[in-house]
């Protein structure tokens, strides 16, 4: 791969049926590009968690993915409510998800920790009332 590849996705808010489509598409694209299966899985899981967060917490958002020879970078941006206490949000088991979201199988408080766990670099910037940007990178090879 001599040039980097850019992919962009829009995640609709509060549409639980469609959440995961972007991650599924990225996963099959990366497989097609011949990236190693273990890395593809880590990338897919991390993005899927992020995509679910965009759908359930942020009212939707944007995903921008850059694939080059050395890494896959995923930038997730939203104009949602923001996260008041990021260290708290990063704790395993802490969740602000509604009972309805929990009944759908999410809100275990593992989303952000899983995103950090599966990626080599993880950064989160958030301003209450403005939105959140998450940057994740996974090294290839």
């Amino acid at each position: 791969m001599s040039e980097s590849i850019q992919l962009e996705y829009t995640v609709p808010g509060n549409d639980f049926t469609r959440a995961g489509e972007a991650s599924a598409d990225l996963k099959s694209t990366l497989k097609r590009l011949g990236l190693p299966a273990a890395e593809v899985r880590r990338i897919a899981i991390a993005l899927y968690e992020g995509e679910i967060n965009l759908a359930i917490h942020a009212g939707g958002g944007q995903i921008r993915v850059t694939v080059d020879d050395h890494q896959v970078e995923m930038i997730l941006t939203d104009q949602g409510p923001g996260i008041p206490d990021i260290p708290k949000a990063m704790e395993e088991g802490y969740s602000t998800a509604s009972a309805q979201v929990r009944s759908l199988g999410f809100g275990a408080g593992m989303g952000l920790p899983n995103m950090k766990r599966y990626t080599d670099e993880f950064d989160i910037q958030s301003t209450v009332g403005v939105g959140t940007t998450i940057t994740m990178r996974v090294k290839i090879g």
Binding site: F16, A19, A44, Y48, I52, F106
Partner: peptide, 11 residues
């Protein structure tokens, strides 16, 4: 719900 399949797919 469909997220069960999505989760299984990612894994």
């Amino acid at each position: 719900n469909p997220q069960v399949v999505r989760t299984a797919e990612m894994m």
